[in-house]
Design a protein around this nucleic acid. Structure first.
Lengths: 246, 246
DNA sequence: CGCCACTTTGAAACAGTTCAACGTCAGTGG
DNA sequence: CCACTGACGTTGAACTGTTTCAAAGTGGCG
């Protein structure tokens, strides 16, 4: 009965395994806390600003984004999420959502009811620290985005975003060689970078012309990793890919 | 003996009290986990990128900033911290610092050794969720900064930053009427906004000319809160200033 | 086949940067 | 007590990156 859930949580376990070791008991506790798998269509809301949540959502497949809207209706994407990411685990301590989470592609998700998570905090202090860690990874990525957005040129910013997505995809086993799935529109990309679509389009063409990347059919291929990494000043330290006792 | 520590933790307790209720036992646990007060000179490092920390630092007085440097030596400030902020509590689960924390002014701090924090996670699950919450507030602020940086003009960005700092200062009792201490240079401000000092200077003059703010001797006075708030599209929801069971 | 969403292009307008110089003020030492 | 210093703030003008607007091209899908 837990077979399908075990599959669904595979990416999450991989994401954790990169950074720490989970006991069988802890894995079981997570499996028990997990609800049923649901499928959401592309473009739908996973959670919305202002909502008081009583569950948190794990992304099992697809791509989701955190979004904030200005009064003028302009959208800022503050994070992209892939399989294995808890898109709103922070709502467990915070309770109220301060931004939206949107399904960019069709997404499969699993809900974790907050009472079940609360039980984990009462019974499994190490697992609690691991879940805490997961929410802090988001925080670390936000900081890096701020630095990149504030200090780098658009070309470098774009290169950085691709380095990050590739590295994260690889870490949970979603990359195939030098390629990874990233089926988003240039508008999504522009919203994430805080730039106009037109400019992002031209910048993207620049990276293609330099034979650094290829991007077709929703798949990105890194053609020259060293060059891309140098351009982006990409240092994966902030992704905390080391296994350490937490 | 705990008198001075009690004073030192006052802002932290206020910061928590705004969002949740702490039992006497929980307050005691925090006091016990706290080390001695230290004073650091302006410009010094509180913690550095790459460091493996075995303690986390609470800011008791002064202003600190999280910083990330590019290869070219450009500095991005990703957060400002004031009394009552745990500047690197995230290093408790994360262990390794992925950015620096600098003392902008002279700062008083208290260290919390990680073994003591670990004991809290083992014995006080509610207090653990509260500490977790504190780290997530930083995260929420990062997201807002991303949205503001990406979508707002510089004038609005600056107005937003001042609205946020004023609101946060007020929440821990550091504001006097419409004024709050913010003794940072325009260069610090520019590094936080990802813009040139020259442009930040001109923008600041704009806000002063419109009689929205006054800024002298390290103190900012909000002259027209409604106008400033509207300009900045400032909605404090992301600061989670509601008392809710966590 | 035709529609719609997405990508690409060009050109004018604008926001923000850069550079270089000058102003101001508090602290320091002669 | 005053001159000097260095950090910080302010100014002007040329320049560049980015946006905006508007139009045309592309491709998947009912």
């Amino acid at each position: 009965m837990n077979f399908s859930k075990n599959d669904a949580l595979e990416r999450l376990f991989r994401r954790i395994d990169v950074r720490d070791n989970l006991s069988g008991e802890e894995r079981e506790a997570l499996l028990e806390a997990a609800g049923e798998i649901r499928t959401l269509p592309a473009g739908s809301r996973i959670s919305s600003k202002g909502e008081e949540l009583d569950r948190s959502t794990l992304l099992v497949s697809g791509i989701a984004a955190r979004t904030v809207y200005t009064e003028m209706g302009h959208r800022q994407i503050t994070a992209f999420h892939i399989a294995g990411d808890f898109v709103d685990l922070h709502a467990f301590p915070l309770k109220i959502m301060d931004h939206n989470v949107e399904a960019i592609t069709a997404c499969e998700v699993i809900h974790f009811p907050h009472p079940a998570l609360r039980q984990i905090t009462e019974r499994h202090s190490h697992l609690t620290r691991v879940l805490w860690l997961l929410t802090l990874l988001d925080s670390a990525i936000h900081r890096q985005w701020l630095a990149v957005m504030g200090q780098l040129q658009v070309t470098d910013h774009l290169a950085h975003l691709l380095c990050e997505q590739f590295t994260r995809a690889k870490a949970v086993g979603l990359a195939a060689g030098n390629a990874f799935p990233f089926p988003i529109t240039q508008q999504d990309l522009a919203d994430a970078m805080g730039r106009s679509v037109v400019h992002v389009n031209r910048t993207l063409q620049g990276l293609r012309r330099q034979d650094l990347i290829e991007w077709q059919g929703g798949d990105v291929t890194i053609l020259d990793w060293p060059a891309l990494q140098e351009l982006a000043e990409f240092d994966p330290a902030y992704l905390h890919l080391e296994r350490l006792p937490r």
